[in-house]
């Protein structure tokens, strides 16, 4: 048990739990292959993004970029917005989130509850409209502070200074670290730390592969890779489709009792792939992976029940990770 002076102090220090029933069985006499889940849903607002939000705000305060009463602007409909809203509230800032108007009602309600203001971009305009709106807002308000999680070193540093050391402390025999690839902050920070401390550590990325509607007519010449991304930190990178992500998300709650969001299912899929390879090669493996958040925010998708094909249809066109 532990006691903290405020909710901000309670960020991180999440449990690492073994998955004895989902870990692959090894032949008699072969070295053990074990899966371990880092329960990041146990953070103050229920996701791993609390770590990055807290570090980014602190770094901006220390650099003098943020002063009491300032406004923070972040284009997000996801967990980062919720984490920033909580941190902003407790540290005395105003938060404005920009998002398409067709995001789920849970997202909007949660953000408003935590005190964020929301500027919607037209759903019909898709990501092009979101870009236009974000450009317009940032040009009109040059005094608003963009923490810009995709390029903010404090995002990766949060994991270098907290997630990485926690994992090594709890699992000194770690052989693989598996996490999701979004801003890349978790993998870059934790991956760098573990590479410095653990010989032969494998840093494995699981990247969501959405339905075709999401990629649409996106032009290959105008792609985007986050500034934080450094491919040399990774050992391997898997692309996980919607069906596999849903299948693993359901398995995790059915077999091990962990109720997680779909990005966690994608990560578990990659973790199982490397675990089964280790079994095949007769190698010892302690595979730690990240449970990014709980499943509550995704219940309205309907993808936790029915057939896998139904779930895949329900998530088509959605950014489920």
């Amino acid at each position: 048990m532990a006691r903290y002076d405020s909710l901000l102090e309670a960020c991180g220090g999440t449990p690492l739990v073994g998955l004895p029933r989902l870990s692959p069985t090894v032949p008699e006499g072969a070295p053990p292959v074990r899966l371990w889940a880092k329960l990041e849903d146990r953070n103050p607002t229920g996701s791993i993004k609390d770590r990055a939000a807290l570090f980014m705000v602190r770094a901006a305060e220390e650099a003098g970029r943020l002063r009491p009463g300032d406004t923070i602007l972040e284009p997000t409909s996801g967990n980062t917005g919720i984490s920033l809203a909580m941190v902003a509230k407790l540290r005395g800032y105003r938060l404005v989130c920009v998002m398409p108007e067709n995001v789920s009602t849970e997202r909007v309600q949660l953000l408003r509850m935590y005190g964020a203001e929301i500027i919607f971009s037209a759903a019909a305009g898709g990501s092009n409209q979101a870009v236009a709106t974000a450009k317009q807002i940032s040009a009109e308000h040059p005094d608003w502070v963009m923490l810009y999680q995709y390029g903010n070193e404090a995002n990766a540093r949060a994991h270098y200074e907290t997630t990485g050391p926690e994992l090594l402390h709890d699992l000194p025999t770690i052989t693989h670290f598996v996490a999701g690839l979004g801003t890349t902050g978790t993998l870059m920070g934790t991956g760098r730390y573990l590479r410095e401390k653990v010989d032969g550590i494998q840093v494995v990325a699981a990247e969501p592969r959405y339905g075709e509607l999401v990629y649409g007519l996106r032009n290959i010449d105008e792609g985007y890779v986050p500034e934080l991304y450094d491919a040399t930190v990774l050992s391997r990178r898997f692309s996980v489709g919607t069906r596999d992500a849903v299948l693993r998300t359901r398995q995790l709650v059915e077999v091990e009792g962990i109720f997680a969001g779909f990005s966690t299912g994608a990560i578990l899929h990659a973790a199982l792939a490397v675990a089964h390879e280790a079994v095949r090669d007769g190698r010892r493996a302690d595979v730690a992976f990240v449970v990014c958040d709980g499943g509550w925010k995704y219940l309205s998708t309907g993808a936790y029940g029915g057939t896998l094909a139904d779930a895949e249809d329900a998530l088509e066109g959605q950014l489920w990770a």
Binding site: P75, T76, S77, G78, V98, M99, P100, S127, N128, A130, V131, A132, T133, A134, K135, S138, A139, P142, M146, Y148, Q149, Y150, G151, G180, L181, G182, T183, T184, E207, P208, R209, Y210, V214, Y215, R218, N219, I220, G223, Y224, V225, P226, E227, S239, L319, A321
Partner: peptide, 25 residues
């Protein structure tokens, strides 16, 4: 084969737009 947009097409698109505008700001 896929275009590089992993991890939230909206977030990336908006972030890419804003990173260009940070210089302007």
């Amino acid at each position: 084969i896929l275009p590089a947009v992993a991890g939230g097409a909206f977030g990336f698109a908006a972030a890419a737009a804003i990173s260009q505008h940070r210089a302007a700001a």
